[in-house]
Amino acid sequence: MADDLDPSEFEETARAAMAACAGTADPAARGRLLAEAGLLGVIAPEAVGGLDLPIRFALPVVKAAGAGLLGYPLIEALLLARHLAPVDPALAGAIVEGRTLASIAWTGCAEDRSVNGLPMGERADPVLVFLRDGGAGLLSRGQGCHALASTGLDIDLPDSTLVLSGAKPRMVLDAAAVAALRADAALLRAGFIEGAAAQCLALAADYAQERVQFGKPLSANQVLRHRLSRDALAVETIRAGLARALAEPAEGAAIAREAVWLCAAQTGPAIAESAIQVFGGMGFTWDVPLHRHLRQMQAQATRGTAIEGIDALAEALLADTENEWYGDLAYAG
């Protein structure tokens, strides 16, 4: 099936679905709209109602979500529909159909009695939580757990803390399955951020050409032209890095994926910050949506534990080299 399709064919459908979602305040209704557009099952197996397409087909969907400030745990829905399908096809099918709003608590583990980074946690049921052994389990409401209100930045997709008081997660994914889910998550998050960052750049570039000061548009000033050019470079860098990671280069698919995720987590919010600066006082207002993009991208960086990712990469870099020219330098540490 994938051979007959191009991921770009999903772009228009995804944009239209995001626009429709923006018109309704009810997250459950947004889920149904996304399901009706066939977007929640893009990468889920056919057995659960999905299209069983490779992950690259989900990229236009998450990019549109990032650009459209989607208030629905789309990344979590895509991941759960794909990765739970072998162990809980009924639940995966309900997610694909938009009947169940499920989510993932991205930070912490169940044994610590509380987990965090749970997008739309106050509505989600069930919730996937990670376990200390590297696996993951499902928790349902009323199983000795309750969600606390968001303390994070994201207002469109607020994060919750889930407090576990005697709850026992139902083990569904082993460590290898969780690693595969996290690998997909890195790509989807980077795609979401690319969409959001590109939207911030487009808004800033338009505003810079409309806003006249000192008798000329802001875009006539080299300092602003260069700022926007740097932001364009940053967006293009994420785009190209994602294309490369999706192509799974033989010299290192894992590092290509991790790098684009870490790059997106850092540069995405910086592009929103830059756009706010271009807008001046208007950029600091609640009504201009740049702060919502900034909040969403910062939340993605937190959910994806980008800081820990950089430290893990540093450890890997220090531990070994794959370049045979330096194999004669023994480790003295």
């Binding site: 293009e236 860098t237 994420i238 785009r239 190209a240 890095g241 994602l242 294309a243 490369r244 990671a245 280069p249 590092i255 290509a256 790098a259 684009v260 790059c263």
Partner: peptide, 9 residues
Amino acid sequence: EMLKGLVET
């Protein structure tokens, strides 16, 4: 890694 992506694109 990101530079490799820009070149390969």
